[in-house]
Amino acid sequence: MKVQLKDVHKEFKKEQNQKLQVLDDINFDIKEGEFVSLLGPSGCGKSTILKLIAGLETTTAGEVLVNGKAVNKPGTDRIVVFQEGGLFPWMTVKENVSYGLNLKKMSKTEIEEKTMDGLRMVHLINFADAYPHELSGGMKQRVAIARALVMDPEVLLMDEPFAALDEQTRLVLHKELQNIWRNTGNTILFITHNIREALTLSDRVLLMSTRPGKIKKSFTVQSARPRDPADSVIVDLERRVMAELEVEMEKVLKEEFGDDYSFKTDNLRSSDHRDMGSHI
């Protein structure tokens, strides 16, 4: 097992000694080279799980193991790609991509080579000297992916990396990510709100329930790659995942609007066809 979460609990301190329990008894494994997606309502603790694996947060109870070793601080074997990319605006594209490499014991030429390879992989070689503010949203995400990939991470952690992009750009990046994954064999944990995105990319989709966050169900996607969203297996899974999520969302909404709120399942269903659950 590449990544293991064992009985993980996480609480955050709130003011006046109150505690907010975010994760409750999370258990799951990710196999070497596996592509796993994490799906769930907003605020259920997806990003928290990712930060625990990245070593940016520590568990309240339980452990996170990577390669069988307990994680307690960030390490370059696990790299994160954030939703807004998290590119440093004061550095050029090239400087951003080589940022992590400069901290490794590597010669200048080696760094240069790897940086250029990374940029080539995401088709941005012509933008090496541009600054992030000169790039489109999709290009920024590609730089962020390149910055992560040049580190040769064993685990790639992606937190809604394509959420802010338009549909076309997202489809292009899905293709690119799948190619990259095929060529590098990385282990990937991918967080998303988009059911279809999760199903097209992953070997397995973990569905979370909310407050406190638990893993509710795991769906294995047994469909040949490259995936076709119209594939009957995917369409069927999409419907099942949607049904499960509706239950969770109803809970969230009831909590937010009070018990008298009734979730209009019909409304959601009728608009399903065009853009099924892309923003839950």
């Binding site: 954030f82 440093f88 992590g100 580190m151």
Partner: peptide, 16 residues
């Protein structure tokens, strides 16, 4: 915090 987190996972710390 996104910059701090990104830098830390890329291996930066301390005076760097």
């Amino acid at each position: 915090s996104i910059y701090m987190d990104a830098a830390k996972t890329l291996g930066s710390s301390g005076s760097h």
